[in-house]
Design a binder for these strands. Structure first.
Lengths: 332, 332
DNA sequence: CTGTTAGCGCCTTCAT
DNA sequence: ATGAAGGCGCTAACAG
């Protein structure tokens, strides 16, 4: 049985209340002498505070919970780093839960384990919450914010990149390099993110006077295999000269599949990845990318849930970083 | 203010004790009628149980905490998946904490936030705990187990691959392909893992009658940059014909650096990665590997901390999976 | 089957 | 500056 403040009170010959005060370091609410006595007793007993009990009475907690969509989304790392950094700056602890990969039941489970405990706030990293689970979150009255995902519903707070701009800037980048027949691979068909990116893509093409062919867009779920499948669909004589990959992983998928098809990147085909995580630098040729600022999303997320006021949505900036996967076309 | 069992007791016209019973689903300890009344009241109030309070009185918890070393170790994912799977099988919840990258202060912080709360057990994923922090863990009386790391100290429980075998099998694999001058890149110099792998490596060479040159071993911290640095040290006319990379990432580092040096893999240089995570399939040529079974480590980890008895150390099997980074040498 | 009682470990007035 | 007392939300006997 672990030692409690009562034990140390007895040992130090003071009351539990006093022990509580010195351990909580309510400075100048106790004499130096008692302070030392108590500390000594605590040390001797190997005392470990039961924070759960303390939180029960104070009705507040220092932990912020991050719920992560899937164990596979590689950009979760920089977001979490941002969260940690900002959390520690505010003297908050962070715990992370995995919510599976779109499975509503797993989501519910992660949510309840968090809601049933005293957590100060909840950050959801690119989890597209099943509709049935949203009320759970809202009813809990715990401040929350979605990260790296956006919704049509304006009433739920989120922080992410401007997906329209992502699609637009990506396309402009390729256009600027002289490409006109530009594909988009592995992007989702049904969610806000995919729709926005495609809207930006279409707009950029339209402004350049090119009308995109339906086959230029290969839908998918942002995964490596989605990228492979997309490239398989484009075929060995693709109608496009450049492809935007919906994620880094998807882009690597098209890269490898292109190679299998006997295509050289960027000689025969140019590639531009969306996300800009470490993966872009791992493969050869290194992937040019429209990079999101995931770290800042994490930072902003903590700020958002800490600020009482509701800034419902916020955008973090993107930037395009050139690497080696785009070939400059002189003419058609 | 969230609703409590008292509120719902009042609303349902029963006592708090009864409410507790039906909500805890102590079947057959209440009539169906009261059950329904209580459930209805709970639903109307949007009741959320305060598990922390419950844990306070029952003195036990259903959450197991996983502390992971760094946000960058890519093999953490499969381990965590294994943990989740086995935990859910046992109806346990899991929370994850990041302990930074070897920073004792961050480790301490992660440890205390976990120890100060009611967690059932603690799993530490490849965290090499600062000596000063081990007592913290031990004093807490919470069952714990290290995963994917090993120690000289026999008294701390861990589950990992047999590192000696990792080094030995890796070397044998290259030997079997006809290589004799074999390097080892990015491996640590000071810890149990590195020493064991190198011992296995040396033994295999010795059995084949080759005496390793000191420059064949390039120490490092398993990172991508460690791999790059190692390859830089081997140079454009390396004395070795094959290199074992201490991790997948390190191996990609040597791969890319080799390319920069004008070397073709596997034509000019063969590569064998240790770990066998997804990364091996991402790059070209795909990396042959000595693969560890990270998923099973996670599973075994929760089994270990759940079993009361202390099976101090356990080994998970490895296997070598051939891909495309090794060239078969006919003769020297 | 259900109400009552007594805490779990801690913090916080309120006195002293 | 310190002790005593009450209670956070919940569960676990113990009566009835």
């Amino acid at each position: 049985m672990a030692a409690t403040i009562k034990d140390i009170a007895k040992l130090a010959g003071v009351s539990p209340g006093t022990v509580s005060r010195v351990l909580a370091n309510k400075t100048a609410f106790f004499s130096q002498q008692t302070g030392e006595k108590v500390q000594a007793a605590a040390a001797k007993l190997g005392y470990q505070k039961n924070t759960a009990a303390a939180e029960l009475v104070t009705r507040q907690s220092n932990v912020i919970a991050a719920i992560v969509n899937s164990t596979k989304t590689n950009f979760a790392s920089p977001i979490i780093e941002g969260i940690q950094a900002e959390a520690h700056r505010r003297d908050l602890d962070v715990i992370i839960l995995y919510a599976g990969d779109g499975d509503p039941e797993q989501q519910r489970r992660a949510l309840t384990t968090v809601i049933e405990r005293p957590v100060r706030s909840i950050l959801l990293l690119s989890v597209d919450l099943a509709a049935e689970n949203l009320p759970l979150l809202q009813r809990s009255r715990i401040p929350f914010c979605f990260l790296s995902i956006s919704f049509d519903d304006v009433r739920v707070p989120y922080i992410t990149s401007d997906d329209w701009q992502v699609g637009y800037q990506a396309t402009r980048t390729l256009l600027a390099a002289g490409h006109r027949r530009i594909g988009f691979a592995g992007v989702d068909r049904d969610f806000h993110t995919g729709r926005q990116r495609l809207a930006g893509y279409r707009r950029a093409l339209q402004e350049a006077g090119v009308s995109p062919q339906p086959e230029w867009i290969q839908f998918g779920n942002y995964s490596y295999t989605a990228g492979q499948a997309a490239m398989q669909a484009y075929g060995a004589q693709p109608d496009v000269t450049a492809i935007i990959g919906a994620s880094d992983l998807a882009t690597v998928g098209v890269l490898n599949q292109a190679r299998s098809l006997g295509l050289q990147v960027p000689a025969d085909l140019s590639l531009l990845a969306i996300d800009g995580t470490d993966i872009c630098e791992l493969v050869r040729p290194a992937l040019s990318s429209v990079s999101q600022n995931f770290y800042d999303m994490g930072v902003a997320g903590v700020q958002q849930v800490s600020a009482g006021n509701a800034i419902p949505q916020k955008i973090t900036p993107i930037k395009v970083v050139p690497r080696a996967s785009i070939r400059r076309l002189v003419s058609e």
